[in-house]
Simulated assay, not measured.
Amino acid sequence: MNLRYEIILYWSEEDQAFIAEVPELPGCAADGETYQAALQNVQIIMQEWLEIAQRLGRQIPDPKLRSVTT
């Protein structure tokens, strides 16, 4: 499956954990004690999100492509 979605990673004082969110996949987020753990966890959640959406016949959004200008 295509996991080329934007991931936003940040530290949450409230949760005392790193949070990783995937804005293009509603409700798709994970946390972790480290930056790397949050990233690894959200990759698993993204895969599960896409598999469930596919199984339920829901539309899966295409990843947004960003252009980089120099």
Rank of each mutant, 00 (worst) to 15 (best):
Ser12Trp: 00
Gln40Cys: 11
Val42Lys: 00
Asp15Glu: 15
Asn41Glu: 09
Gly32Tyr: 07
Asn41Gln: 12
Glu51Ser: 08
Ala37Thr: 05
Gln43Asp: 12
Met46Arg: 06
Leu25Gly: 01
Thr34Trp: 04
Leu39Thr: 04
Ile44Gly: 06
Met46Lys: 01
Glu48Gln: 09
Asp31Pro: 00
Glu51Lys: 10
Glu21Ala: 06
Glu13Leu: 10
Gln43Trp: 03
Ile45Trp: 04
Ala38Met: 03
Glu48Pro: 02
Glu24Val: 13
Glu14Phe: 03
Phe18Ala: 06
Leu50Ser: 05
Ile52Tyr: 04
Ala37Trp: 09
Asp31Ile: 03
Glu48Ala: 15
Glu13Gln: 03
Glu33Met: 08
Met46Asp: 05
Gln43Lys: 14
Gly27Gln: 02
Gly27Ser: 04
Ala30Glu: 08
Gln36Met: 12
Ala20Asn: 05
Leu50Trp: 10
Ile8Ala: 11
Gly32Pro: 12
Ala17Arg: 13
Val42Ile: 09
Gln54Ser: 15
Gly32Ile: 07
Glu21Met: 09
Glu33Gly: 02
Asn41His: 15
Leu50Asn: 02
Ala29Gln: 05
Tyr35Ser: 02
Glu51Asn: 11
Leu25Cys: 07
Trp49Ser: 01
Ile44Tyr: 12
Ile19Leu: 10
Ser12Ile: 05
Glu51Val: 02
Val42Gly: 07
Val22Trp: 01
Gln43Asn: 11
Leu25Val: 05
Ala20Arg: 01
Gln36Lys: 02
Ala30His: 01
Ala29Met: 12
Gly32Arg: 12
Gln47Met: 11
Gln40Ala: 15
Glu48Met: 13
Tyr10Arg: 15
Glu14Gly: 03
Glu13Ser: 08
Ala17Thr: 04
Leu50Val: 09
Ala37Val: 08
Ala20Ser: 14
Ile8Trp: 01
Pro26Tyr: 07
Ile45Val: 15
Leu9Tyr: 13
Pro23Tyr: 11
Trp11Arg: 10
Glu51Asp: 14
Phe18Ser: 05
Gln43Leu: 09
Cys28Ile: 04
Glu13Asn: 06
Leu9Asp: 00
Leu50Thr: 05
Phe18Val: 07
Ala30Pro: 00
Ala17Leu: 11
Trp49Lys: 00
Glu14Cys: 03
Pro23Glu: 12
Phe18Tyr: 15
Phe18His: 09
Gly32Lys: 05
Pro26His: 02
Asn41Tyr: 01
Tyr35Gly: 10
Glu14Leu: 06
Glu24Leu: 08
Gly27Val: 07
Ala30Gln: 11
Glu48Arg: 14
Glu14Met: 02
Asp15Pro: 02
Gln47Arg: 14
Gln54Ile: 03
Ile19Arg: 00
Asp15Trp: 03
Asp15Arg: 10
Trp49Thr: 01
Ala29Ser: 11
Val22Cys: 11
Trp49Leu: 03
Glu48Phe: 05
Ile44Ala: 15
Tyr35Glu: 13
Ala30Asp: 01
Glu14Thr: 07
Ile52Val: 08
Glu21Ile: 07
Leu9Gly: 10
Glu51Cys: 01
Gln47Lys: 15
Pro23Phe: 09
Trp49Gln: 08
Ala30Trp: 13
Gln54Gly: 12
Gln43Ser: 14
Ile45Gly: 12
